[in-house]
Design a protein around this nucleic acid. Structure first.
Length: 263
DNA sequence: ATGACTCAGGAACTGAGA
């Protein structure tokens, strides 16, 4: 089973790119972030025509997450517990059934947090604390869990081409990285790091200043696996070439192949 | 150089992104 994540920076602007990528990647489950539209405005038809079930949690203008699945959804819920006043559309959770078992998948869009001297950064850190609590609860279920999306976290120096440029940034500050490490300390596995310790593996290149041409990238889109999901990990990869397409998102897809064949 | 592009909203710009 191939599960992928992609911050598309507007699903309506990126529709042609997303359809072209689906054709070549052929994922079974896709987590989308920054769909930038209300739920009712999501272009459902082209995805349903390809055989995907849809779950969408949108809002007007900003944010918005979605799930596509060739397998049926058992349970779908949106919103991250711990702050009833938080109305930003950044979290969508579903249980997906296959003939050989279930997998719980979360499509998340973690707050950016810049500028760090504002309430935006405290919102990010509190959101991460809530995510740690959520993960702690879900890991008790001892089931395959795929926690994935745009984390807006550069986990380590090796995950940026120019780490010095990010030392005071909300994506790389110690308080940010400590909380990401708290997630992995709970027992979640960073799928890319499970298959390679190589550098030059990025998922985002800024639109400005020729960042793509200079390969001035960062790795901030992640797939975290519970032990029961990590046991099934076959491959993990980043579809870097998609950044070179016409009218690209500033992020590229990341995917894992999990073995859900009968045993 | 707290900039450079790209998006949504809404009709000229601003805010947000990272």
């Amino acid at each position: 089973m191939r599960i992928a994540t992609w911050n598309v920076n507007s699903v309506r602007q990126r529709l042609d790119n997303v359809l072209a990528w689906l054709a070549e990647c052929a994922p079974d489950v896709v987590c989308l972030q920054e769909i930038k539209c209300e739920t009712a405005a999501f272009p459902r038809e082209p995805f349903e025509r390809l055989g995907y079930n849809l779950a969408v949690h949108g809002q007007k203008g900003f944010n918005g997450v979605a799930l596509l699945s060739k397998y049926p959804f058992d349970e779908v819920s949106h919103g991250l517990h711990g702050d009833e006043a938080d109305i930003q559309a950044r979290f969508l959770e579903a249980v997906i059934s296959t003939k050989t078992g279930c997998v719980r998948v979360v499509s998340l869009y973690l707050p950016n947090g810049n500028p760090v001297s504002t309430e935006k950064y405290t919102y990010k850190l509190k959101w991460m604390d809530r995510l740690i609590q959520f993960s702690h609860e879900r890991l008790k279920l001892e089931e395959p869990l795929v926690l994935t999306g745009d984390f807006n976290v550069i986990p380590a120096v090796v995950d940026a081409q120019r780490p010095a440029a990010w030392v005071n940034d909300a994506l790389f500050l110690p308080a940010t990285r400590e909380r990401f490490r708290a997630l992995t300390d709970l027992g979640l596995t960073d799928a890319i790091r499970a298959v390679t310790d190589a550098g030059d593996l990025y998922t985002f290149w800024d639109y400005t200043a020729g960042a793509w041409a200079k390969n001035d990238g960062i790795r901030i889109d992640h797939i975290l696996l519970s032990p029961h999901a990590a046991d099934r990990l076959k491959t993990a990869g980043i579809d870097k070439h998609v950044r070179g397409w016409e009218k690209p998102s500033d992020h590229v897809p990341v995917y894992v192949d999990l073995d859900f064949e009968p045993r």
